[in-house]
Simulated scan of single mutants.
Amino acid sequence: MRIVITGGFGFLGRQVVDALLERRTLCGAAIDRLVLADRFVPAEATVASDPLVDVVQGDLHERLDEIFTQPVDVLIHLASAVSSECEADFDLGMSANLDTTRALLDAARAQSAAGGPTPRVVFSSSVAVYGSDPALPLPPVVSESTLPTPQSSYGTQKRVCEQLVAEYTRRGFVDGRVARLMTVSVRPGKPNAAASGFLSGIIREPLAGLPAICPVSPGLRVALASPRRTVEGILCIAEAGRGSGPGQLEGGLPVNLPALTVTVAEMLDTLRRVAGDAVADRVTLSPDPAVEAIVGSWPAAFDNARATALGLRPDASFESVVRAYVEDHPEAVRSADLPAAGAIGGRRID
């Protein structure tokens, strides 16, 4: 099996790659090649030396011939421009998100038309496809049957791509499936340009001994998923069979990955409870109406029934999310001023 992951060196890409390299199988078949396609390849990316891994570096739109030089069995499309980038630069978002996705789908279609395998395409969409339109306010709890009315360029681009995946699947060009991702928190590494980036930053930076800005009202409710749960959801949807039984993907609707609903105040209270006052006091409230307008337009409460039918569950609590982050990334946490001489998440982290 030859698997291609676009955005393979991005945050989620690396997480998915690590999971696949640990498993060495997908859909019950051995992975023969794992192709990581990305515009940038970090110099320290040791994963590139794994014998299963091939690297395709450069603009995705320009490297499709190289990606499809051999048959692609599974394509996990994670590469995209993020929310604030798309709002600031309309043409960038249209090119990186919409045009590139259509080009990928056309390349996959050409492969099957030429007698090759019909690729299984997993598209990473977003909760940003939803928004509260004045003529159609969001219901208190959102499901896949809720009409998406995005209120940002990023959300609109993701929604159009969802429809393209559905149409290419209906026509038999690809076997497409769409995972709508919740905001992922806590992301490791450096901040990115996503409007929702602060939902990781207000935890990640204080734990690292750095100040952080919270640009929204503490009472804002948000839907979150940990990196662990997000990767689990992506791979589950990639492997799901077609049908109506347990663990089967029925119909052509996207799947909203399971959501944990919390307020920003609850996130900050959790940080204070788990890591102490010195850490939590590194967060400063500084409202940014533009950020709150984008993030506040997204729904916060979801009916997880469709994901549950696939065996997926939301995170148990935000405290479990914070403790998992510390367990997975002890090198990113400054232990000196944590409670119990650096004990957190059931372990020491000095």
Rank of each mutant, 00 (worst) to 15 (best):
S153P: 10
A114M: 04
T230S: 15
R334A: 06
I203A: 00
S83C: 03
V295L: 06
P287V: 01
A301V: 07
C86K: 04
G233A: 10
H77N: 06
L199C: 07
M1T: 02
T6S: 10
K158I: 13
V55Q: 05
R273D: 15
K190E: 12
L260F: 13
S83N: 00
V279D: 06
D175E: 15
A128P: 10
C236P: 08
S153Y: 12
R109T: 01
G172Q: 13
V283F: 08
L235I: 09
G155N: 05
R33C: 02
P140L: 13
R23E: 15
L92F: 08
A48H: 00
A103L: 14
F90Y: 15
V295P: 12
D337R: 03
V326S: 04
V122S: 01
R102L: 15
T156A: 13
A29V: 02
A81Y: 13
E66Q: 13
D91V: 12
P299V: 00
D277Q: 14
E162P: 12
A43L: 09
P51A: 05
S132W: 00
T261F: 14
R204W: 03
L207C: 06
R347T: 07
V82S: 00
R120D: 01
A179T: 11
E22S: 08
D99E: 14
S286T: 10
V41S: 08
N256E: 11
P134L: 14
G116I: 01
R63K: 12
P215Y: 03
G247K: 10
S244M: 14
P287D: 11
L249T: 11
P258W: 07
D65E: 14
T263F: 14
A37L: 03
R24D: 10
P42Y: 15
V262L: 07
I5Y: 07
G155K: 04
R282E: 13
P139S: 14
R63P: 01
S145A: 12
L34T: 04
V216I: 02
L312S: 01
A265C: 08
V222H: 05
S152A: 11
P254N: 03
M94R: 12
Y154L: 07
V72Y: 13
D315A: 06
L199P: 15
G155S: 06
L338S: 03
G58R: 10
A37W: 04
E167K: 11
A278R: 07
E66I: 03
H61Y: 02
E327A: 10
D18I: 08
V82F: 10
E292P: 09
W298P: 08
A107S: 03
L210Y: 04
A166T: 06
S226E: 15
Q157M: 12
A340V: 05
